[in-house]
Amino acid sequence: MSQSHTCVTGQVSGPLCPVEEVLDHVSGKWSIGIVVALAAGPMRFTELERHVKGISRRMLTLNLRKLERDGLLLRTVYPTVPPKVEYALTDIARDLNESFATLIAWAERSRHSITEARVDYDQEHGAAAAS
């Protein structure tokens, strides 16, 4: 089975991006971390780097560009020496963050049940089945 994408970088006309592509962009590990971190307010690159645990500078840069292109982030450059750059959520990203907050609350409520289910499964099917 092959997957195809109708939206290509630089393609302006044509059909809207499919829902799967939008979900892929916003559901990535780093995208979620960036949106959740920026929910506290605008941040500079190095602040974001500290808040999003484990992200490399390159991955942060790539994800910031992707989220800005998708209209989820505002990048503001202040005319100072050296230039000051801040990132902030747009209205649609704040709306998205509400969904993330709901998902995070569900994960916190469900983590013990999931852990118990994993233990039960591993005991029934053997530890090798868990990987």
Rank of each mutant, 00 (worst) to 15 (best):
S56W: 04
W30D: 05
S56C: 08
Q11M: 12
D24S: 14
E21D: 09
P15F: 02
D95M: 02
D120Y: 05
V119P: 00
I92M: 11
E47I: 06
E68R: 10
V36I: 15
S4A: 12
R69L: 04
L64P: 00
S2G: 04
R44S: 08
G10Q: 05
P15E: 03
L74C: 11
L23K: 07
Q11F: 09
R75E: 13
E116L: 14
T115S: 15
C17M: 14
T102S: 13
V12P: 02
Q123V: 03
T46Q: 06
R111D: 06
P83W: 08
E21V: 03
F45W: 06
R111A: 15
G71S: 12
A105T: 15
P42I: 01
V81F: 04
V22R: 10
L96K: 03
P15N: 02
V22G: 07
G71N: 06
R65K: 15
L64N: 08
S2H: 07
S131T: 13
D95N: 03
A105H: 14
V81P: 00
H5A: 13
Y121T: 04
M1G: 15
L74F: 11
I104F: 10
R109M: 05
A40P: 00
L62V: 14
E21W: 02
L60R: 04
A107F: 07
Y78P: 00
P18R: 07
D91T: 10
T102I: 12
C7I: 06
E98T: 10
L38H: 01
G54I: 13
G126E: 00
L62Y: 14
V26Q: 00
N97P: 04
V85C: 06
V35M: 07
A127V: 11
E21Y: 03
A101M: 14
E47D: 12
E49N: 10
S99E: 08
R118E: 11
E124H: 08
F45A: 04
L89N: 01
S4M: 10
T46S: 09
E47K: 06
A130W: 09
T46Y: 03
G14F: 05
I32N: 00
V81D: 07
R75P: 09
I92H: 08
A101H: 14
Q3W: 03
S31M: 03
R118F: 09
S113H: 15
A88R: 07
E21Q: 11
S113C: 14
L89I: 02
E108Q: 12
H51P: 08
P18N: 08
V85W: 03
S31E: 05
G10H: 04
P42S: 12
C7Q: 07
R57Y: 05
A88N: 03
A130H: 13
F45C: 04
S27H: 05
L64H: 05
M1V: 12
Q11G: 09
R50G: 11
Y121C: 05
T61A: 15
A39K: 12
H112W: 11
